[in-house]
Design a protein around this nucleic acid. Structure first.
Lengths: 147, 147
DNA sequence: TTAATTGCAAACACTTTGCACGCTA
DNA sequence: TAGCGTGCAAAGTGTTTGCAATTAA
């Protein structure tokens, strides 16, 4: 329950009204270990007796994403966007090309490469996104490589 | 004209029939300097008096992508997929978050970080995608930062 | 000849929007 | 109570597909 107060403050600090739907979405995303799509959030809430509409889920995600409370990912060849709680840690992902699962990596190998690039290109660099692809141990065991 | 023969051989080597549409799409993508979307390809062909249907453009892109003759990118918050000629060079991109232009970077700063990760996580790593985001010099001049 | 490719129109999947009602601050 | 949040149904957008006609091999 303490967690809800924390999330309610997060909303307040972002200038958003505190609604049960927003808290429920944040709470779910904070607890889940990998990025999930809108439909998965929708069904999770329904199963937990929180009546909500899919369009509200989308609107909520959009709102939270605009306030940078969430991160949003689109994986090539997957149609649905994936969302995760933004804990502000700088992260990268290991994406399984068989089951599409995303695992986060805490390390960032990029060091001061960005600084070098900025000087070379005159871009103002604001961030980067690094995904590393491969087959997760489970899919290797299932022999799903290549599917 | 020699270029067409080269592209026709590319198709043949991939086991694809040689059609004017496929050659035209490949030719355009080979000459353009940044990834483009299906509609841009469609209009380019129409303007060059190559009669084609948008759905054929999509089917062609899908076919060429499956044969790895093209690369496909999806940028978060952009709805349209971007395609580029796959010249097999290992590349990364500098993406302007204002005008969405993508510039390629030839360097790869990742070195043997992947090897380290593979050992640590038991993934079989097959590749990675690195995009670096920021504002391009043109958008900086236009004062478009933040839009 | 025959199997792959194409045009066209219709279908699709995910996401967004208009409007009337409900609820937070 | 003023204005943001929500449900519902309908619309939107990029992409895909079924089918008949066309074309490459």
């Amino acid at each position: 329950m303490d967690k809800n107060i924390e999330l309610e403050n997060l909303l307040k600090d972002s200038g958003l009204k505190n609604t049960k739907h927003r808290v429920a979405v944040l709470k779910f995303l904070k607890n889940v270990k990998q990025p999930v799509n809108a439909e998965e959030i929708y069904y999770h809430l329904i199963e937990n007796n929180i009546s909500i509409n899919l369009s509200t889920v989308y609107r909520t995600l959009e709102t939270l994403y605009n306030k940078e409370l969430l991160l949003k990912h689109i994986v090539t060849d997957e149609k649905k966007a994936l969302y995760e709680y933004n804990n502000k840690a700088h992260k990268h992902f290991l994406v399984c090309i068989s089951c599409k699962k995303m695992l986060s990596i805490e390390n960032c190998p990029l060091g001061d490469y960005e600084k070098f690039l900025e000087e070379k290109t005159d871009f103002i660099i604001t961030g980067h996104k690094l995904n590393i692809y491969g087959y997760c141990p489970e899919c290797q065991k299932k022999g799903l490589i290549g599917e």
